[in-house]
């Protein structure tokens, strides 16, 4: 009886929390996105589709969205390319070493990501650490222009997001039954074949989870583009921030957020669909 009561209390606390800080704000956002901009307040009646019309008809906004998707996609691919071998390498270590690697991976989280972004700036700057080292080593003659480029933005995003790729992959690969790899080898499969036909198919849930965990937050990391890219080109995160703080067009800012939320929902639904397919295929075989 007592356990039951505690359970109910915990569940209602969690769902109450989600309702209050998850569902209610999103509903408010949704409502605001259909209101009209107000010069002195934040929004006012009547309900209108102005914001959505503006978003879809103005080619500028579409370009911002496409640019953000492109940047997030590049970041995700880079994270996957580095994160996958890293996770595989980690899984293959002895238990103690694995623990050390995972702890080292977590330590940067103790520092706020904004502070770490500033740190990258000091490394990449014209008189920064990297240029100074390369100059001293005689590799280059004049300092490289690294900061305030797209490369710097991608590098920053890659650095911040890499652990979010590695951790789901690690969790997935750790569960992988290594006997299957050995069986494939016994049956004469080459290294490439084992990787392509055994390891990758078994780690698809991890790959999808990692990609989503990198792609989705990357779309919103507006300060990385602002600090490392010189804020020259807006990303969707910057656009939302500008609408709320500078332009005070809350309906447009809300509409942009709603579009972003929808985009992410579609991706998560796709993820769930793929997972269900995989699960049912697993049952059949």
């Amino acid at each position: 009886m007592k356990i039951m009561r505690t359970k109910t209390a915990v569940i209602s606390l969690v769902s109450g929390w989600l309702l209050l800080f998850g569902v209610v704000p999103i509903l408010m956002l949704l409502a605001a996105s259909f209101l009209t901009q107000d010069a002195t307040g934040f929004f006012r009646l009547p309900f209108a589709l102005t914001s959505y019309r503006q978003l879809f008809l103005d080619p500028g906004y579409l370009e911002v969205l496409l640019r953000s998707v492109k940047l997030a996609a590049i970041t995700t691919i880079c994270c996957l390319a580095v994160g996958y071998p890293f996770a595989w390498f980690t899984v293959r270590r002895a238990r103690k070493q694995r623990l050390v690697i995972l702890i080292l991976l977590m330590i940067p989280f103790w520092t706020n990501s904004l502070v770490r972004t500033y740190a990258i700036r000091m490394v990449l700057g014209t008189n920064g650490l990297l240029n100074k080292m390369l100059l001293a080593a005689g590799v280059i003659e004049a300092p490289l222009k690294l900061l305030y480029t797209d490369t710097a933005v991608i590098l920053g995003l890659f650095y911040l997001m890499l652990p979010f790729m590695i951790l789901p992959l690690y969790a997935n690969l750790e569960k992988l039954d290594y006997r299957l790899v050995e069986a494939a080898r016994d049956l004469g499969a080459g290294l490439m074949a084992i990787f392509r036909k055994v390891i990758v198919p078994l780690s698809i849930p991890g790959i999808f989870a990692g990609c989503i965990m990198v792609f989705v937050p990357t779309m919103g990391l507006f300060y990385v583009a602002a600090l490392l890219g010189g804020a020259r080109q807006l990303l969707i995160g910057n656009l939302i921030q500008q609408q709320f703080l500078n332009a005070r067009n809350w309906p447009l800012g809300s509409a942009t957020s709603v579009i972003l939320i929808l985009l992410m929902t579609v991706m998560l639904a796709g993820y769930a669909l793929v997972m269900r397919r995989l699960a049912s295929r697993g049952q059949r075989s």
């Binding site: 500028g60 370009e63 911002v64 080109q233 807006l234 656009l239 332009a247």
Partner: peptide, 8 residues
């Protein structure tokens, strides 16, 4: 201002 920053 947004057009300037969205374009090019």
């Amino acid at each position: 201002w947004e057009k300037l920053r969205a374009g090019n």
